[in-house]
Amino acid sequence: MDPAVLRDDMVDGLESPPREVIESEAVAEAMRAVPRRLFLPDDRNAYADSDHEVRGSRILAPSTVARLLEALALEPDDDVLVVGVGVGYTAAVCAEIVGETNAHAVDIARPLVFDARENLERAGYGGVLVDCRDGANGLPEYAPFDRILLEAAVAESPRALREQLSPSGRLVYPRLRDARGQRLEVQTAAGERSPRGIVEFDPLLVAGEQTGAVERNRTAREDREFAARRAESRRGWEQEWIEWDAGSRRSNWPSR
């Protein structure tokens, strides 16, 4: 079947019950225009509303992408930053709305950055800037941004991203809510927040946890952090380096 027809069917399904996640014409037209199949290793299910996995990274289902874009509320010529570019599909849809040179993206995983650049070039969006960065630090060289999309869950929005917003900008991100899961949240540059429903995203990674890194185990990092916290909380006899003498505490560490 003609890929354009499949894209139309996909968008029609996202506009209609039971999903009804697309409300704006801009998002609908952009998703009809971007060839999603060029961003997937297997294009047989490219227009099905399902997630995929590439290089250990989750490619969001079209309905999830639509929800993110509706929350972003992009306008033509907005400067937008996508944190967590993945294979580049979301960045391409953003570029379709705001223009290629106004779309920027970063990812901490270098293999994904290379894939995203190739995919965007092949799909006709080679003007999108994609760089390998720690997502929590954003892309300060190109700030401020009218819109920032963080495609990874965090307990609190990274300060650097908030500081890179324009005065009228907005940041869209999945916020962790402890045992209650995650909630999509929109935060303005002024700090105002508004919820946009329940979501489920992978956590924001730090150096050493990205695809292709020597160490990718979040549990190992968390174990080290908890061990450091326990060590700092020890007192008295638990500290092997403390010597009790005449009721006073003296360190055996050499003086500096």
Rank of each mutant, 00 (worst) to 15 (best):
T188Y: 04
T188H: 02
T188G: 09
A189R: 07
A190V: 04
A190M: 07
G191W: 02
G191E: 02
G191R: 00
E192H: 03
E192D: 05
E192S: 05
E192N: 03
E192M: 02
E192V: 03
R193C: 03
S194R: 06
S194L: 06
S194V: 05
S194P: 00
S194N: 02
P195R: 03
G197L: 05
I198N: 13
I198A: 13
I198L: 06
V199N: 08
V199P: 07
V199E: 13
V199C: 06
E200A: 09
F201N: 06
F201T: 04
P203V: 01
P203K: 02
L204A: 09
L204Y: 05
L205Q: 10
V206G: 14
V206H: 08
A207I: 12
A207W: 06
A207M: 10
G208A: 13
E209C: 03
E209K: 01
E209L: 14
E209T: 03
Q210E: 15
Q210H: 15
T211K: 09
T211I: 05
A213C: 05
V214S: 07
V214W: 09
V214H: 08
V214E: 12
E215C: 07
E215D: 10
E215N: 11
E215I: 06
R216C: 09
R216V: 13
N217T: 09
N217S: 15
N217L: 11
R218C: 05
R218D: 04
A220T: 13
A220C: 03
A220N: 08
A220L: 14
R221V: 12
E222P: 05
E222W: 15
E222H: 15
E222L: 15
D223N: 14
D223L: 15
D223K: 15
R224S: 14
R224K: 14
E225T: 11
E225Q: 13
E225A: 14
F226N: 03
F226S: 03
F226R: 13
A227V: 04
A227F: 09
A227R: 09
A227H: 05
A228S: 09
A228L: 12
R229L: 15
R229W: 14
R229V: 12
R230H: 09
R230Y: 11
E232T: 01
E232S: 04
S233K: 13
S233L: 15
R234C: 03
R234I: 01
R234Q: 11
R235M: 05
R235Q: 08
R235P: 00
R235F: 03
G236K: 04
W237C: 02
W237H: 07
W237Q: 10
W237L: 06
E238I: 01
E238V: 00
E238R: 14
Q239K: 13
Q239G: 07
Q239H: 12
Q239P: 00
E240T: 11
E240I: 07
E240F: 07
W241P: 01
W241I: 04
I242T: 06
I242K: 09
W244P: 01
W244I: 04
W244T: 07
W244M: 01
W244C: 00
D245G: 00
A246L: 04
